[in-house]
Amino acid sequence: MAWSRDQLAQRAAKELRDGFYVNLGIGIPTLVANYIPDGMEVTLQSENGMLGMGPFPYDEHVDADLINAGKQTITALKKTSYFSSSDSFAMIRGGHIDLSILGAMEVNDRGDLANWMVPGKMVKGMGGAMDLVAGVKRVVVVMEHTSKDGASKLLKACTLPVTGINVVDLVITDLGVFEIDKHGSQPMKLLQLADNVTLEEITAKTEATFVNALR
């Protein structure tokens, strides 16, 4: 069995470090907040203009003026600060956020990422994704290894319009974990296999080339 959504989030949580300022994307990345290790201090940023995001509110505490980037109602913490969207993206684009965890449709072995549009379909927009991948110090992608029709999402070259080039540092899929030397020339490395996944299986389901760096 490959990793479940929650196991993917759990694995992604291992990339957190004490004191990190982190931006989590919508979907599986949001679940990472449930797996922050006890005793570790991680501050979550919401790109609409908030640092120090708390959990969902109790029903009677719902505040229309307090939402996250997914437009969900949330709460503040003691350390919370609010600011404008331009200040928020100054944090992101200025390299002040330590880690961004986000979803993807395709990633290639040079760290190019596609996650915002499929030509011919209604395009909703990139939101803050292009800013996050261009500006955040470390970018971790969490995604299914293959599409619904079984095609590899880890490619030699992205087929969809990209969100950024040479931006992804680590890819965590339901089958395993890959490290990308996005600014260098090292090949993509397979670091870890998901539970009960074999090297043969992950090799067969990966179009991109990689070297075996299993520890």
């Binding site: 969207s85 331009s86 928020s88 993206f89 992101i92 990139m126 939101g127 803050g128 800013d131 500006g135």
Partner: peptide, 25 residues
């Protein structure tokens, strides 16, 4: 991009005709 949109508004209001960003390259 959201940050580019925010910064374009900030720049416009501050009399800045243009700016260079890594976003979207």
């Amino acid at each position: 991009p959201q940050g580019t949109l925010a910064e374009r508004c900030r720049a416009g209001g501050a009399g800045i005709a243009g700016f260079y960003t890594k976003t979207g390259v």
